[in-house]
Design a protein around this nucleic acid. Structure first.
Lengths: 152, 152
DNA sequence: GTAACTGCAAAATATTTGCATCCTT
DNA sequence: AAGGATGCAAATATTTTGCAGTTAC
Protein backbone atom coordinates (compact mmCIF):
# COMPACT_ATOMS: atom_id res chain seq x y z
CA UNK A 1 0.00 0.00 0.00
CA UNK A 2 3.00 2.31 0.26
CA UNK A 3 6.07 2.79 -1.87
CA UNK A 4 8.53 0.35 -0.38
CA UNK A 5 10.90 0.22 -3.24
CA UNK A 6 14.30 -0.01 -4.74
CA UNK A 7 17.74 0.95 -3.56
CA UNK A 8 20.86 -0.37 -5.19
CA UNK A 9 23.79 -0.63 -2.91
CA UNK A 10 25.64 -3.82 -3.42
CA UNK A 11 26.65 -6.52 -5.77
CA UNK A 12 25.50 -6.66 -9.35
CA UNK A 13 24.91 -10.33 -9.83
CA UNK A 14 21.54 -9.88 -11.45
CA UNK A 15 22.18 -12.47 -14.10
CA UNK A 16 20.15 -15.56 -14.68
CA UNK A 17 23.05 -17.75 -13.73
CA UNK A 18 23.07 -16.54 -10.15
CA UNK A 19 19.33 -16.72 -9.79
CA UNK A 20 19.31 -20.34 -10.88
CA UNK A 21 22.24 -21.05 -8.59
CA UNK A 22 20.48 -19.65 -5.57
CA UNK A 23 17.38 -21.69 -6.23
CA UNK A 24 19.32 -24.88 -6.84
CA UNK A 25 21.54 -24.35 -3.82
CA UNK A 26 18.36 -24.33 -1.76
CA UNK A 27 16.89 -27.45 -3.34
CA UNK A 28 14.16 -25.50 -5.04
CA UNK A 29 12.99 -26.25 -8.52
CA UNK A 30 13.62 -23.43 -10.94
CA UNK A 31 10.27 -21.97 -11.95
CA UNK A 32 9.25 -18.74 -13.62
CA UNK A 33 7.54 -17.40 -10.50
CA UNK A 34 10.54 -17.96 -8.31
CA UNK A 35 12.93 -16.52 -10.85
CA UNK A 36 10.84 -13.39 -11.27
CA UNK A 37 10.46 -12.71 -7.57
CA UNK A 38 14.08 -13.48 -6.80
CA UNK A 39 15.14 -11.21 -9.65
CA UNK A 40 13.12 -8.41 -8.12
CA UNK A 41 14.96 -8.76 -4.84
CA UNK A 42 18.33 -8.91 -6.54
CA UNK A 43 17.67 -5.86 -8.68
CA UNK A 44 16.15 -3.77 -5.93
CA UNK A 45 18.40 -4.17 -2.99
CA UNK A 46 16.21 -3.18 -0.12
CA UNK A 47 12.96 -4.35 1.25
CA UNK A 48 9.78 -5.30 -0.52
CA UNK A 49 6.38 -6.12 0.79
CA UNK A 50 3.70 -8.20 -0.79
CA UNK A 51 1.87 -5.25 -2.29
CA UNK A 52 4.94 -3.86 -4.02
CA UNK A 53 5.83 -7.24 -5.44
CA UNK A 54 2.33 -7.71 -6.71
CA UNK A 55 2.43 -4.31 -8.36
CA UNK A 56 5.83 -4.89 -9.93
CA UNK A 57 4.94 -8.24 -11.37
CA UNK A 58 1.45 -7.36 -12.45
CA UNK A 59 -1.03 -9.93 -13.54
CA UNK A 60 1.53 -12.41 -14.77
CA UNK A 61 1.37 -14.19 -11.47
CA UNK A 62 -1.38 -15.21 -9.10
CA UNK A 63 -1.44 -13.43 -5.76
CA UNK A 64 -1.45 -16.78 -4.03
CA UNK A 65 1.74 -17.79 -5.78
CA UNK A 66 3.45 -14.71 -4.42
CA UNK A 67 2.39 -15.59 -0.90
CA UNK A 68 3.63 -19.13 -1.27
CA UNK A 69 6.87 -18.17 -2.97
CA UNK A 70 7.73 -15.65 -0.27
CA UNK A 71 6.98 -18.25 2.38
CA UNK A 72 9.27 -20.76 0.69
CA UNK A 73 12.05 -18.20 0.42
CA UNK A 74 11.73 -17.33 4.10
CA UNK A 75 11.76 -20.99 5.06
CA UNK A 76 14.89 -21.56 3.04
CA UNK A 77 16.57 -18.49 4.45
CA UNK A 78 16.85 -16.72 1.11
CA UNK A 79 14.94 -13.72 2.40
CA UNK A 80 14.03 -12.58 5.87
CA UNK A 81 11.30 -10.43 7.31
CA UNK A 82 11.92 -6.94 8.60
CA UNK A 83 9.90 -5.68 11.53
CA UNK A 84 7.56 -2.81 10.74
CA UNK A 85 5.25 -0.56 12.66
CA UNK A 86 2.37 -0.84 10.28
CA UNK A 87 1.02 -4.25 9.58
CA UNK A 88 2.73 -5.02 6.34
CA UNK A 89 5.48 -7.56 6.40
CA UNK A 90 8.55 -6.40 4.56
CA UNK A 91 11.02 -8.87 3.14
CA UNK A 92 14.69 -8.42 2.26
CA UNK A 93 17.38 -10.61 0.78
CA UNK A 94 19.61 -12.37 3.22
CA UNK A 95 23.23 -11.63 2.64
CA UNK A 96 26.33 -13.51 3.72
CA UNK A 97 25.81 -17.04 4.91
CA UNK A 98 22.10 -16.79 4.84
CA UNK A 99 21.58 -19.38 2.18
CA UNK A 100 22.89 -21.91 4.64
CA UNK A 101 19.65 -21.85 6.58
CA UNK A 102 20.16 -19.75 9.67
CA UNK A 103 20.73 -16.23 8.55
CA UNK A 104 22.99 -13.60 9.90
CA UNK A 105 20.94 -10.56 9.10
CA UNK A 106 22.26 -8.63 12.02
CA UNK A 107 22.35 -5.36 10.19
CA UNK A 108 20.31 -2.23 10.73
CA UNK A 109 17.42 -1.32 8.45
CA UNK A 110 16.64 2.24 7.53
CA UNK A 111 13.17 3.46 6.58
CA UNK A 112 12.96 6.87 4.95
CA UNK A 113 10.17 9.09 6.23
CA UNK A 114 10.11 10.91 2.93
CA UNK A 115 10.26 8.26 0.18
CA UNK A 116 9.32 5.30 2.41
CA UNK A 117 12.02 3.15 0.90
CA UNK A 118 13.59 0.62 3.23
CA UNK A 119 17.33 0.23 2.87
CA UNK A 120 19.47 -2.57 4.24
CA UNK A 121 22.48 -0.98 5.89
CA UNK A 122 24.56 -4.09 5.41
CA UNK A 123 27.60 -2.59 7.04
CA UNK A 124 25.93 -1.19 10.12
CA UNK A 125 25.84 -3.93 12.70
CA UNK A 126 23.25 -3.99 15.42
CA UNK A 127 24.99 -3.13 18.69
CA UNK A 128 24.78 -5.38 21.72
CA UNK A 129 22.66 -4.19 24.62
CA UNK A 130 22.80 -5.17 28.25
CA UNK A 131 19.50 -6.67 29.30
CA UNK A 132 18.08 -6.94 32.81
CA UNK A 133 18.92 -10.02 34.87
CA UNK A 134 17.25 -13.13 33.51
CA UNK A 135 16.69 -12.13 29.91
CA UNK A 136 18.51 -14.32 27.42
CA UNK A 137 18.81 -12.64 24.03
CA UNK A 138 18.90 -14.74 20.88
CA UNK A 139 18.22 -12.25 18.14
CA UNK A 140 17.91 -8.52 17.69
CA UNK A 141 16.30 -6.26 15.14
CA UNK A 142 16.88 -2.56 14.72
CA UNK A 143 15.02 -0.18 12.47
CA UNK A 144 16.08 3.43 12.17
CA UNK A 145 13.85 5.96 10.45
CA UNK A 146 14.61 9.42 9.19
CA UNK A 147 15.73 10.92 5.89
CA UNK A 148 17.76 8.76 3.55
CA UNK A 149 20.72 9.52 1.36
CA UNK A 150 18.62 10.21 -1.71
CA UNK A 151 16.08 12.49 -0.06
CA UNK A 152 18.33 14.65 2.06
CA UNK B 1 -3.66 -14.59 17.44
CA UNK B 2 -0.80 -15.27 19.83
CA UNK B 3 -0.36 -14.77 23.54
CA UNK B 4 1.03 -11.28 23.76
CA UNK B 5 0.23 -10.67 27.36
CA UNK B 6 0.98 -9.26 30.72
CA UNK B 7 4.16 -8.37 32.51
CA UNK B 8 4.21 -6.10 35.48
CA UNK B 9 7.33 -4.10 35.93
CA UNK B 10 6.59 -0.59 36.90
CA UNK B 11 4.32 1.81 38.60
CA UNK B 12 1.08 0.78 40.22
CA UNK B 13 -1.19 3.65 39.31
CA UNK B 14 -4.00 1.40 38.17
CA UNK B 15 -6.67 3.40 39.85
CA UNK B 16 -9.60 5.01 38.20
CA UNK B 17 -8.34 8.44 39.07
CA UNK B 18 -5.28 8.09 36.90
CA UNK B 19 -7.19 6.61 34.02
CA UNK B 20 -9.58 9.51 33.98
CA UNK B 21 -6.70 11.92 34.28
CA UNK B 22 -4.92 10.51 31.28
CA UNK B 23 -8.03 10.73 29.17
CA UNK B 24 -8.83 14.25 30.26
CA UNK B 25 -5.26 15.41 29.83
CA UNK B 26 -5.57 14.35 26.21
CA UNK B 27 -8.90 16.05 25.59
CA UNK B 28 -10.72 12.77 25.29
CA UNK B 29 -14.14 12.19 26.70
CA UNK B 30 -14.20 9.56 29.42
CA UNK B 31 -16.09 6.55 28.10
CA UNK B 32 -16.35 2.96 29.20
CA UNK B 33 -14.50 1.63 26.16
CA UNK B 34 -11.56 3.93 26.63
CA UNK B 35 -11.37 3.29 30.34
CA UNK B 36 -11.39 -0.47 29.86
CA UNK B 37 -8.71 -0.50 27.18
CA UNK B 38 -6.51 1.97 29.01
CA UNK B 39 -6.89 -0.05 32.17
CA UNK B 40 -5.66 -3.11 30.31
CA UNK B 41 -2.52 -1.31 29.27
CA UNK B 42 -1.91 0.04 32.76
CA UNK B 43 -2.40 -3.34 34.40
CA UNK B 44 -0.40 -5.35 31.91
CA UNK B 45 2.76 -3.42 31.38
CA UNK B 46 3.99 -4.71 28.07
CA UNK B 47 2.62 -4.86 24.61
CA UNK B 48 -0.82 -5.83 23.42
CA UNK B 49 -2.17 -6.43 19.97
CA UNK B 50 -5.69 -6.16 18.77
CA UNK B 51 -6.41 -9.87 19.15
CA UNK B 52 -5.30 -10.00 22.77
CA UNK B 53 -7.31 -6.94 23.66
CA UNK B 54 -10.37 -8.40 22.01
CA UNK B 55 -9.91 -11.63 23.93
CA UNK B 56 -9.38 -9.87 27.26
CA UNK B 57 -12.39 -7.66 26.92
CA UNK B 58 -14.69 -10.25 25.46
CA UNK B 59 -18.00 -9.39 23.91
CA UNK B 60 -18.56 -6.30 26.00
CA UNK B 61 -17.15 -4.18 23.25
CA UNK B 62 -17.50 -4.11 19.52
CA UNK B 63 -14.40 -5.01 17.53
CA UNK B 64 -14.72 -1.77 15.62
CA UNK B 65 -14.62 0.24 18.81
CA UNK B 66 -11.32 -1.38 19.72
CA UNK B 67 -9.87 -0.41 16.35
CA UNK B 68 -11.06 3.15 16.75
CA UNK B 69 -9.99 3.48 20.36
CA UNK B 70 -6.49 2.22 19.64
CA UNK B 71 -6.23 4.65 16.74
CA UNK B 72 -7.28 7.54 18.95
CA UNK B 73 -4.76 6.54 21.62
CA UNK B 74 -1.97 6.37 19.07
CA UNK B 75 -2.94 9.76 17.64
CA UNK B 76 -2.88 11.29 21.09
CA UNK B 77 0.45 9.69 21.94
CA UNK B 78 -0.94 7.63 24.80
CA UNK B 79 0.27 4.40 23.23
CA UNK B 80 2.71 3.67 20.44
CA UNK B 81 3.19 0.84 18.01
CA UNK B 82 6.01 -1.64 18.31
CA UNK B 83 7.52 -3.07 15.13
CA UNK B 84 6.97 -6.78 14.64
CA UNK B 85 8.04 -9.40 12.17
CA UNK B 86 4.66 -10.95 11.73
CA UNK B 87 1.86 -8.76 10.57
CA UNK B 88 0.21 -7.94 13.82
CA UNK B 89 0.63 -4.46 15.18
CA UNK B 90 1.55 -4.43 18.84
CA UNK B 91 0.82 -1.45 21.01
CA UNK B 92 2.43 -0.34 24.23
CA UNK B 93 1.90 2.49 26.67
CA UNK B 94 4.06 5.51 26.20
CA UNK B 95 5.97 6.33 29.32
CA UNK B 96 7.62 9.55 30.42
CA UNK B 97 6.60 12.63 28.54
CA UNK B 98 4.62 10.72 26.02
CA UNK B 99 1.29 12.19 26.89
CA UNK B 100 2.60 15.49 25.67
CA UNK B 101 2.31 14.40 22.08
CA UNK B 102 5.71 13.40 20.84
CA UNK B 103 6.78 10.36 22.75
CA UNK B 104 10.15 9.30 23.98
CA UNK B 105 9.77 5.58 23.73
CA UNK B 106 13.43 5.04 23.09
CA UNK B 107 13.62 1.84 25.03
CA UNK B 108 14.23 -1.70 23.86
CA UNK B 109 11.39 -4.19 23.55
CA UNK B 110 11.86 -7.86 24.31
CA UNK B 111 9.78 -10.61 22.76
CA UNK B 112 9.98 -14.02 24.41
CA UNK B 113 10.28 -16.94 21.99
CA UNK B 114 8.69 -19.19 24.57
CA UNK B 115 5.69 -17.33 26.01
CA UNK B 116 5.47 -14.71 23.25
CA UNK B 117 5.00 -11.94 25.76
CA UNK B 118 6.42 -8.58 24.78
CA UNK B 119 8.09 -6.68 27.58
CA UNK B 120 9.04 -3.03 27.59
CA UNK B 121 12.58 -2.80 28.91
CA UNK B 122 12.05 0.73 30.09
CA UNK B 123 15.54 1.07 31.44
CA UNK B 124 17.39 -0.29 28.44
CA UNK B 125 17.97 2.58 26.07
CA UNK B 126 18.42 2.03 22.36
CA UNK B 127 22.07 2.67 21.56
CA UNK B 128 23.10 5.14 18.89
CA UNK B 129 24.49 3.75 15.67
CA UNK B 130 26.71 5.39 13.10
CA UNK B 131 24.93 5.49 9.77
CA UNK B 132 26.49 5.79 6.32
CA UNK B 133 27.09 9.27 4.90
CA UNK B 134 23.85 11.03 4.04
CA UNK B 135 21.43 9.19 6.31
CA UNK B 136 19.74 11.42 8.88
CA UNK B 137 18.25 9.39 11.71
CA UNK B 138 15.17 10.67 13.51
CA UNK B 139 13.93 7.65 15.38
CA UNK B 140 15.06 4.13 16.18
CA UNK B 141 13.34 0.95 17.24
CA UNK B 142 14.98 -2.11 18.66
CA UNK B 143 13.39 -5.46 19.35
CA UNK B 144 15.34 -8.23 21.01
CA UNK B 145 13.98 -11.76 21.11
CA UNK B 146 15.01 -14.74 23.19
CA UNK B 147 13.96 -16.19 26.52
CA UNK B 148 12.51 -13.87 29.12
CA UNK B 149 12.95 -13.68 32.85
CA UNK B 150 9.90 -15.81 33.60
CA UNK B 151 10.62 -18.58 31.11
CA UNK B 152 14.32 -19.12 31.69
C1' DG C 1 6.51 -40.57 -14.77
C1' DT C 2 6.31 -38.39 -10.40
C1' DA C 3 6.58 -34.97 -7.23
C1' DA C 4 6.30 -30.43 -6.78
C1' DC C 5 4.39 -25.93 -8.34
C1' DT C 6 0.69 -23.00 -10.00
C1' DG C 7 -3.89 -20.99 -10.83
C1' DC C 8 -8.51 -20.70 -9.71
C1' DA C 9 -12.27 -20.69 -6.51
C1' DA C 10 -13.61 -20.08 -2.17
C1' DA C 11 -13.11 -19.89 2.76
C1' DA C 12 -11.34 -17.58 6.68
C1' DT C 13 -9.57 -13.46 8.70
C1' DA C 14 -8.67 -8.67 9.31
C1' DT C 15 -9.73 -3.82 8.67
C1' DT C 16 -12.48 0.15 7.22
C1' DT C 17 -16.65 2.86 6.39
C1' DG C 18 -21.50 4.69 6.79
C1' DC C 19 -25.12 5.60 9.47
C1' DA C 20 -28.46 5.57 13.19
C1' DT C 21 -28.44 5.64 18.14
C1' DC C 22 -26.55 6.57 22.61
C1' DC C 23 -23.62 8.92 25.91
C1' DT C 24 -20.50 12.59 27.68
C1' DT C 25 -20.01 17.19 28.65
C1' DA D 1 -28.85 20.36 23.61
C1' DA D 2 -24.76 19.30 20.69
C1' DG D 3 -20.95 16.86 19.40
C1' DG D 4 -18.61 13.03 19.78
C1' DA D 5 -18.50 7.87 20.64
C1' DT D 6 -20.47 3.43 19.91
C1' DG D 7 -22.78 -0.61 17.73
C1' DC D 8 -24.37 -2.75 13.82
C1' DA D 9 -24.27 -3.91 9.02
C1' DA D 10 -21.74 -4.20 5.22
C1' DA D 11 -17.98 -3.11 2.16
C1' DT D 12 -13.07 -3.86 1.42
C1' DA D 13 -8.71 -5.91 2.01
C1' DT D 14 -5.69 -9.60 3.30
C1' DT D 15 -4.26 -14.27 3.90
C1' DT D 16 -5.08 -19.24 3.80
C1' DT D 17 -6.73 -23.63 1.98
C1' DG D 18 -8.28 -27.32 -1.33
C1' DC D 19 -8.03 -29.18 -5.53
C1' DA D 20 -7.28 -29.98 -10.36
C1' DG D 21 -4.28 -28.99 -14.06
C1' DT D 22 0.63 -28.03 -15.38
C1' DT D 23 5.58 -28.07 -15.17
C1' DA D 24 10.38 -29.19 -13.67
C1' DC D 25 13.50 -32.76 -13.26
Amino acid sequence: MDATNRRSTCSTFTNMETINDILKRNDLSVTDSRKKILELFLKQNGALNHGVIEKSIGDDMDRVTIYRTLQVFVDKGIIHTIPTNDNSIRYALCKDHCEAGHHHDNHVHFVCDSCHITTCLDHVTIPEVVLPEGFKPKHAEMVVSGICKECE
